[in-house]
Design a protein around this nucleic acid. Sequence first.
DNA 1: TTGTAGGCGTTATCAG
DNA 2: CTGATAACGCCTACAA
Lengths: 328, 328
Amino acid sequence: MITMTEIAKLTGVSQPTVSRVLNGNTAVNPKIRERVLACAREHEFQPNVIAQSLVGSKTHLIGVVLTDISNAFFADLVKYLEQEARKSGYSLILFNSNYNTEQEKESLAVVQRYRVDGLIVVPVDETSAQWNAQIRRLDIPTVVITRHVEGMDSVYVTHREAGAQVGRHLWEEGYEEYIFFGTTRDAKYQGFAEELKKHGPGFGRKLTVITSKEEAKVKAGLEAYFRKERGRTGIFAYNDRRAVQMLGLLQMLGIDVPGQAGLVGFDNTYMCEFLYPRLSSVSQPNEEMATWAMKRLIRKIEDPEKGREVKNRALKATLICRESSKKQ
Amino acid sequence: MITMTEIAKLTGVSQPTVSRVLNGNTAVNPKIRERVLACAREHEFQPNVIAQSLVGSKTHLIGVVLTDISNAFFADLVKYLEQEARKSGYSLILFNSNYNTEQEKESLAVVQRYRVDGLIVVPVDETSAQWNAQIRRLDIPTVVITRHVEGMDSVYVTHREAGAQVGRHLWEEGYEEYIFFGTTRDAKYQGFAEELKKHGPGFGRKLTVITSKEEAKVKAGLEAYFRKERGRTGIFAYNDRRAVQMLGLLQMLGIDVPGQAGLVGFDNTYMCEFLYPRLSSVSQPNEEMATWAMKRLIRKIEDPEKGREVKNRALKATLICRESSKKQ
DNA sequence: TTGTAGGCGTTATCAG
DNA sequence: CTGATAACGCCTACAA
């Protein structure tokens, strides 16, 4: 890899002159300019951004530290993050914490050693004191994505509200009893339950929660559930994976969807369109989330004044109604 | 961010001494050592790897340039790549070409400007002369993953062999006619067709290809297909996405799976286990592929001698038989 | 318009 | 054991 100094020697000028030509800032003698450019082209000069970073104290590197890149949802976010960063000439240096706080901690340290200009993070546990302490000491412009953290910039989707949307939808479609497939700590559950509560005081008896991740247990639970005399049941699964599993189980048990049971998933992954019946699901605004996060981050980096105040962006999810939860 | 020079001033020693202490290479006076370490800890010193890179001509950065990070298959690979790189102290700088050769070209240039130590690539089109010229001129240790490129290190799965496996399986399960859902350029198709050919000369009439990506056309094609008198039909979809779509269509048309039609997908994604009937699928050794690629790359980087010769690794995929293609 | 000098934060190589 | 000194590749004054 040829350097400016070498080009300088080759063309008989000084290195700063080469720099001027290659960066096109200042005016230079056209003859020299041509000579230098020709030489650079010939040797396929590529500036050493490492050296540029050292002097300019700007690396054009953005650290991305997230919990699970193999999760399609995050992978999708990364795609848009990269797209947006690229537009402004930044590159992504990627770390996967794998939901492991040790790895996350180490990743944040590495990111600091690379002197990244900014940071996009999906914390393993944003309530952890250790994490909060570390991320704040880093003193790097940061945007939290997917979670809401007090005192830091963040973009996230209002899961509670999304849960309420699903509750309303299932109620409107005439489902009389309900199942939530997930944990009660999930904000989606809370919104879902609250919404249903509005439609009658007896909702407690009408809302069942299935928490287990073991298929056999889930199946047994469903069997027991449907053995009783039941009205039409609306089921909300906390993500599409689980929704697909639920659909498979319902089909296995011979329960008609959406007749006896309506089903709504979460994430609106591509397969929703492919399943039979097509799966209703809640769509998160991935592109918007990623784009906002990156734009915001770059603004913080390039305009520290405006970047100072903390901005939070709560985005709404959209329920996509398909066949799996339709009125009969 | 405190630097070695600052620590040196604070502790009244020279900067190189600080470097020695912090790197623990050479022996230093225990008193000074303690003083320096204390100071470094107090100010949470983190070495500037950018500066280290500049002098050491090693960035510990590995460029990853792939076609579509939002594809679950590649996202999975990235997870393992990161894991393996991390073990050896390397970090990933990630680029998504989005199947766009312009973006790919630019990414390769950026990667070079960052002076990455190595490169993992999934080319948009490995047969392109332009790409071949560029990648070779880069002169960076590179491992191609997922594709086979003459004269370069690569790991890939033998799709042709996988296709043959599927053909054999469907034949053994008693399917008498066959559909391939994908394109005939796909090596999977070739292996599939060749295998079927072994079981009788009339295979040409018995193997139908559905290429369209438009659901309506696919549906119409299937309807026309099954309107005729048909034996049991074995269907091979080029990936799980398509297999799910196919399954949905078959269910919609009221065709019994695996009775009238058997179905096999490709990629063995999580949903195979969740669908009803459970989907047979070909499992690619993602972890092995990624791990091999990264280990090989690091070896090339750290031991240029051994890294010189070109190594190719062809991995076999494994067919996972489930309910969707079982003998009746 | 061009060259010289200095510095970014390290590491490495010398003397001492 | 420790401190100068040079070097990595580039940029930004400053001077000519």
